[in-house]
């Protein structure tokens, strides 16, 4: 358990690194000619990466057998939400200069913003119900609710591709990552991979026999 604690400390430190660096670089001229836009894009990118990392935890623990990885799933998901909140805040502050009416207009008129905003909205209930007590209280419903994360990831990826102008090489890396994660949710695809059962599940099987 001690090692998990230190891994968590390390994971938190790692998660704060991008935003710390971005703020520092922003004020020291390290973000190029248009630091506001660069900051906004980078925050969005990290939001997506944290989300995909969080989604990768389940398949990774099955593949590796390191079941303690589950301890990091919620944390990565919440960091994704955090980065996306700041991403939207920078957009609202620097692009719209806090004009609410324009925010509404942009969300309605620009489909890629509509999708991105929808993805963020859908994340709110997941963030709120991410606590242990909610997990307990909601039971089966919790798992069903949190399947939304796949919809959110898909929306985020479409938002990312749609805003890019012509070069799809980089966005396609994340699309491939996302598609792989979704395929792993499908049972018959899992058979092609070295797939371990959850140990708790194995114990149940033993008891049953």
């Amino acid at each position: 358990m001690r090692s998990v604690f230190w891994f968590k400390v390390f994971a938190h430190a790692f998660s704060w690194l991008p935003i710390t660096w971005l703020v520092y670089a922003g004020f020291s001229g390290g973000l190029g000619g248009d630091p506001q836009t660069k900051l906004m894009h980078e925050l969005g990118w990290w939001g997506l990466v944290f989300l995909l990392l969080s989604l990768s935890i389940t398949p990774l623990r099955r593949l590796s057998g390191v079941y303690l990885l589950i301890k990091f799933r919620r944390m990565l998901g919440l960091y994704s939400f955090f980065y996306l909140c700041v991403h939207i805040l920078t957009y609202f502050a620097f692009y719209l200069e806090f004009r609410w009416s324009e925010l509404g207009k942009e969300i309605i008129e620009r489909p890629y913003i509509t999708l991105g905003f929808l993805a963020w909205l859908l994340m709110i209930p997941l963030a709120i119900t991410s606590t242990k007590s909610f997990q307990r209280r909601l039971g089966r419903k919790w798992a069903a609710l949190h399947k939304l994360v796949y919809t959110i990831a898909a929306l985020g990826l479409v938002h990312y591709i749609w805003q890019s102008k012509s070069d799809l090489n980089e966005p396609l890396i994340y699309v491939a990552w996302g598609i792989l994660l979704m395929l792993l949710r499908v049972k018959k695809w899992r058979r092609f991979l070295f797939w371990r059962q959850d140990p708790s599940h194995l114990e149940q099987l033993k008891k049953g026999s």
Partner: peptide
């Protein structure tokens, strides 16, 4: 088609 052209963000220097 994806954004408004009514305004522009004038970049004067690289300060934040």
């Amino acid at each position: 088609p994806r954004w408004s052209q009514a305004t522009e963000r004038r970049i004067t220097d690289n300060s934040f």
